[in-house]
């Protein structure tokens, strides 16, 4: 089968991973800008990071026949630092028109703080002004429900943003219905050991339908699995869903969402 991983941090993965992905059928990936594991000391570092996401990583992926797209923005964890945020937001326009950039992401909330909200609001306005797609990171654990609602309210306060051009990621059982009812796309993330198992993701497909859903690995520098979307596809098959339905979730859906950006062409 062919599949698209719409959320994976390839700069933290190896060429072995690229090889395993490409021979397994994952020929298109999208990489959101995110937190590096430690707080960066200066905005200058983001300049080099955005260059890596827009020039170096697509070239590395191309060696394995994989198309690499990315999302640019300031992640919610580093948004608590407003001085850094001012500087990072100022350099985004230099990179946002590069050929593999799909829009703003992953932007969102982490602990649902006032500073995080302020920085998210500014990035939503930037995306709205350019009519760009948006990929939203929602908080983890006990902060998710509250944060997801706050984010959706903020987006509704920005009338230029069309929910069908926004994907709200890391959705779980308690947030999916509200996200879908408001017309957004939603993402489900598969982590190897704890939350977001293939079983629960396919439960969501069965309960809520596959419309406006993208399933991703969020693979990164921590324990993660770049083939997890294929394992999830297999869970769907194991329950007797047909090949067309599996293809819809793991290939056609991410293609439809990201394809709203004219730069995107799936492999």
């Amino acid at each position: 089968m062919k599949a698209i991983d719409p959320h994976i941090h390839m700069i933290s993965r190896t060429t072995d991973d690229y090889m395993r992905m490409t021979i397994s059928g994952i020929h298109t990936v999208a990489e959101p800008a995110f937190w590096a594991g430690f707080d960066r000391a200066s905005a200058d570092c983001f300049r080099d990071y955005f260059h890596q996401l827009t020039v170096v990583e697509p070239a590395r992926a191309a060696r394995f026949g994989i198309k690499h797209y990315c999302w640019l923005g300031l992640n919610s964890k580093e948004s608590e630092n407003l001085t850094l945020a001012d500087e990072v937001l100022a350099i985004i326009p230099e990179f946002i028109d590069r050929p593999n950039v799909l829009g703003f992401g992953e932007i969102g909330l982490n602990k649902n703080s006032k500073n995080e909200m302020a920085v998210l609001e500014r990035q939503l306005a930037m995306a709205a002004a350019r009519n760009d797609l948006v990929l939203v990171h929602t908080p983890h654990l006990e902060d998710k429900l509250k944060g997801t609602r706050m984010i959706m309210d903020m987006i509704r306060n920005e009338p230029r943003l069309d929910p069908s051009r926004v994907l709200i990621d890391h959705a779980e059982e308690h947030t999916i219905a509200e996200i879908k009812d408001r017309g957004f796309w939603f993402g489900m993330t598969l982590y190897p050991n704890s939350k977001g198992s293939p079983e629960r993701a396919i439960d969501a497909v069965e309960i809520y339908g596959s419309e406006r859903l993208c399933i991703n690995s969020s693979g990164d520098w921590s324990v993660s699995d770049p083939l997890s979307i294929l394992k999830c596809a297999n869970e769907m098959r194991r329950r007797g869903h047909g090949e067309a339905a599996v293809n819809q979730v793991f290939y056609e859906n991410p293609k439809s969402f990201m394809g709203q950006c004219p730069k995107f062409v799936a492999n």
């Binding site: 200066s42 200058d44 300049r47 080099d48 890596q52």
Partner: peptide, 10 residues
């Protein structure tokens, strides 16, 4: 890093 750093901050 596979790409030249443009500044000492990086």
């Amino acid at each position: 890093l596979g790409q030249p750093r443009t500044n000492a901050g990086s």
